[in-house]
Design a binder for these strands. Sequence first.
DNA 1: ACGCTCACTCTACGACCGTTGAGCGAGGGG
DNA 2: CCCCTCGCTCAACGGTCGTAGAGTGAGCGT
Lengths: 179, 179
Amino acid sequence: MTPTSRDAKRARTAQRILEAARQEFAAHGFDAATIRGIAGAAGVDASLVMQHYGSKAALFTAAAQLPGTDREGAAEHLLDVLTVRLGDLPPETSALLRSMLTVPEAAAAVRTHLDERVDNLARSLDGDDARLRALLTVSGILGLTLTQHFLKLRAFDDVPHESLLRAAHIWTAYLSGTS
Amino acid sequence: MTPTSRDAKRARTAQRILEAARQEFAAHGFDAATIRGIAGAAGVDASLVMQHYGSKAALFTAAAQLPGTDREGAAEHLLDVLTVRLGDLPPETSALLRSMLTVPEAAAAVRTHLDERVDNLARSLDGDDARLRALLTVSGILGLTLTQHFLKLRAFDDVPHESLLRAAHIWTAYLSGTS
DNA sequence: ACGCTCACTCTACGACCGTTGAGCGAGGGG
DNA sequence: CCCCTCGCTCAACGGTCGTAGAGTGAGCGT
């Protein structure tokens, strides 16, 4: 092995475990995913996972996270999010979203994230119903994400991505206009 | 006891179990809900639940279901759904929705239901992008349902129900107009 | 070259799960 | 009035989970 120290090897193992955890949590959710399964996918023993991360909950916290909310450029950022989401979801996002209906801490994390998103978006809009339109937009994006990546509605097979993007533009136009 | 036969008593117990199952499945999801917990809430022993419904999966199938899709009146029906959803969700709906991200059969049931809804709505609309608008609408309603009843976004405290209803009207206007 | 550190594995514990079969006791049919 | 049906409970099994602690072997410092 290259002259890397033992610490580096341990750190690389920790990274492999974390990656396996993301995949398992993303695929099965927090409850259904098992420490043994994660350890097996990472090619190590189950108790090593505990020595690295302390508990299953702590491992989940380290593995599942939402993409950081950019501070500004709300309206255009929505387009980016929607555009990006047309591809695959990163496993750490998938892991958190998949558990948000069954694990209270995951629900709290998503709730906090979306609350912040609504606030940021509403702040960059005009009109007294800005908050309402921001709420409609954020929950709409969540709905699209879930119906596409988790429920896999048939309609996504028929509708080309280009049409979805065009719809997103129309949406932002509705967003910017006063009610 | 009134001169009801033993069969009637058994049927009433089955109903109590089913109701308790709906509550538990709605509150915790399929995996986290336990037969013992359901039996306890119904005031009976756990094995009686098995004698009545055969298995946990069968009990879930009997307890969790989506409201039937009305055959016609798609656009106005959406308004009704949204209006109704401003109140509480029935436990059988909550049970299915809460497990749709972690239990494959629940996901399949919701997927089939929403596919059908998209088809019905698209059929009652004009324009070649009718299917796209139907998809946007159905996933938007799902997003609103989840953000309100499961994630409980803060924005729902600030936005009065009346404003949400008005937004729903605007939405249907967008729905009916060609892109 | 030796010994010690430490990343990693092995084994096991206690809890809880879904599920099963035997037993019990009330209450209606003959 | 007796007996038998049957709704219900009790006790237990096999399995899987998260987690803990002892043991082991390879590799670095001296």
